[in-house]
């Protein structure tokens, strides 16, 4: 299911004086993305459709949380200002968060969560495959570890899309509704922000066009098996990666950051 079309060899890295700051911003974006999605998934804990799937979702949330922590720790190191992983996660406001809009969308029903996860996994898995052979050693090491987890995630969410698409009438109706609501956030994942463009130019990030092809190929296979039409002609939203979020993120952060904000500067 995951045979990948060949990618062009990565361009040689050509760092500029701005690269370290851009790398910091980008790693933070990766961290925010993993954290917010993990947070959303963790909201399911104790409320899943069956015990076995409760465990599965918690596992994915734990993988993403672990990945987020690796990125935050690396971002803190890149910044070199003495901030910790928790400072970065708990003491930045919504406009400073750089996650794409997709991952902050509420869970909705199980179909909605699966579709959100599937869209993200397609991007995440294929991105990590590239990052693990990128020029930044630390980022490559994190990607190397995370790609194994992401390979499991994409398998899990792909199979669920197929089950729900080709299951009952009700499951199909729900998965179509979720696609109708969430597909408009897919485009942002592979639309480079200014930071990403600069890092692509410096050879630190892959070109997103071939990445998009891999994603599309995988999604097409899954949709076909799920007997679902591939969504077409959807207007793509963006803004999360530049700090312009949907209203949902504020509430999420209010909950996430509550203790750190109420009692500043303490150890827990």
């Amino acid at each position: 299911m995951m045979t990948d079309s060949p990618m062009p060899a990565p361009a040689a890295a050509a760092p500029t004086p701005e690269t370290p700051a851009q790398l910091f911003a980008y790693v933070l974006q990766l961290a925010d993305t993993s954290l917010i999605l993990a947070h959303r998934l963790s909201e399911w804990c104790g409320h899943g459709p069956i015990l076995e799937q409760d465990l599965a979702m918690a596992n994915i949330a734990l993988d993403l949380l672990g990945e987020a922590r690796s990125y935050y720790q690396y971002a803190a190191e890149l910044e070199g200002q003495g901030r910790t992983e928790d400072d970065l996660a708990y003491l930045r406001s919504a406009v400073e968060y750089r996650n794409p809009l997709l991952v902050e969308q509420p869970n909705g029903d199980f179909a909605h969560t699966i579709v959100r996860q599937f869209i993200y996994d397609c991007f995440h898995y294929h991105l990590l495959l590239q990052l693990k052979s990128g020029p930044d050693a630390q980022l490559a090491a994190i990607a190397e570890k995370s790609v194994k987890e992401a390979a499991y995630h994409i398998k899990w969410s792909s199979e669920w899309v197929i089950r729900l698409g080709d299951g009952t009438e009700e499951s199909r109706r729900r998965v179509e509704k979720a696609l109708g609501n969430l597909w408009r956030y897919a485009g942002e994942l592979t639309t480079p922000s200014a930071t990403e463009k600069a890092l692509q130019a410096a050879g630190y990030l892959p070109d997103y066009a071939p990445l998009q092809q891999q994603i599309d190929a995988h999604a097409a296979r899954v949709f076909e098996e799920a007997t679902l039409p591939v969504p077409q002609g959807v207007f793509m939203q963006k803004g999360g990666k530049d700090g312009r979020h949907s209203e949902h993120l504020g509430y999420l952060l209010a909950e996430l950051q509550y203790l750190q904000r109420t009692y500043p500067g303490l150890q827990w």
Partner: peptide
């Protein structure tokens, strides 16, 4: 609630 809201999911998986 979790059980009832999960019913259609469990049904769909079986049907598939």
């Amino acid at each position: 609630q979790a059980h009832e809201e999960g019913a259609w999911v469990r049904e769909a998986a079986l049907a598939h």
